[in-house]
């Protein structure tokens, strides 16, 4: 398994992803500066969290014009796997690779805490090893994580299994008290139609070792293996 981890000016979760992919999962990694355009040989490209370009204009807006983004669009169109975590999710939305937008949290404050998310669709590479209804403990850390999409688009996304994760209570119930940012339908992560481009606000890479309180993120990373073995 070969994973590229993109570094934009202002990324700050890049080395966390590299650590989990390399040291926990034992896969090989390549760090990609945002001006690179060669993605040959990679199975998965990760856009990590952080504050690319200082969140200037809108989170993810400037990074979506980085030279590597055209290469990533091409990579995804050929079936390559693309994962955006937190700021990486914001970049994928701004680049038009996923549907919807992320607004400021409804309470305006930056929120950094553990959350529970329920897997609502397994039709993506990130959820391919999970089961529908599975509740995972994953942390969030963001200021603009309130997911929004029009009602019409939302219906299409629900119908085609593109809503992958929702914030829920620890026992898996949808309850506004457990929606940390005011996301529409408590959505925490989505995919494209094909399931090979995924974005989510929670950080699976911060929940990949028992020492850090949760290993639930590994269920998601291992989905990459299931997806690739199913495809071949």
């Amino acid at each position: 398994m070969k994973v590229g981890v993109v570094v934009f000016p202002g990324s700050n979760c890049d080395l966390d992803v590299v650590h989990v992919v390399q040291d926990v999962l034992g896969w090989s990694t390549r760090i990609l500066w945002h001006t690179e355009t060669n993605l040959v040989g990679l199975d998965l490209v990760v856009l990590p969290g952080g504050f690319s370009y200082g969140d200037y204009l809108r989170p993810g807006a400037l990074a979506s014009y980085s030279p590597i983004m055209a290469a990533i669009k091409d990579f995804a169109s050929k079936g390559g796997l693309v994962l955006g975590i937190c700021n990486g999710f914001q970049i994928l939305l701004e680049a038009g690779m996923l549907q919807g937008a992320l607004m400021q949290n409804r309470q305006i404050r930056f929120v950094c805490k553990p959350t529970w998310v329920r897997v609502d669709s397994t039709r993506s590479f990130l959820t391919a090893s999970a089961y529908k209804g599975q509740v995972l403990s994953l942390p969030i850390a963001h200021h603009s994580g309130s997911y929004y999409v029009t009602k019409e688009a939302l219906k299409g996304m629900n119908d085609s299994g593109r809503i992958l994760f929702r914030y829920v209570s620890p026992d898996g119930a949808q309850d506004d008290a457990f929606n940390p940012n005011g996301s529409i339908e408590a959505i925490a992560g989505v995919s494209n139609e094909e399931g090979n481009v995924v974005g989510l606000m929670p950080h699976p890479e911060r929940a990949a070792e028992r020492l850090l309180g949760s290993e639930d993120g590994l269920v998601l990373f291992r989905g990459v293996l299931s997806w690739i073995s199913q495809a071949s």
Binding site: N105, R106, I108
Partner: peptide, 9 residues
């Protein structure tokens, strides 16, 4: 028609 938390604050 969208929630504007800054405006509300």
């Amino acid at each position: 028609d969208l929630h504007d938390p800054q405006g509300e604050a």
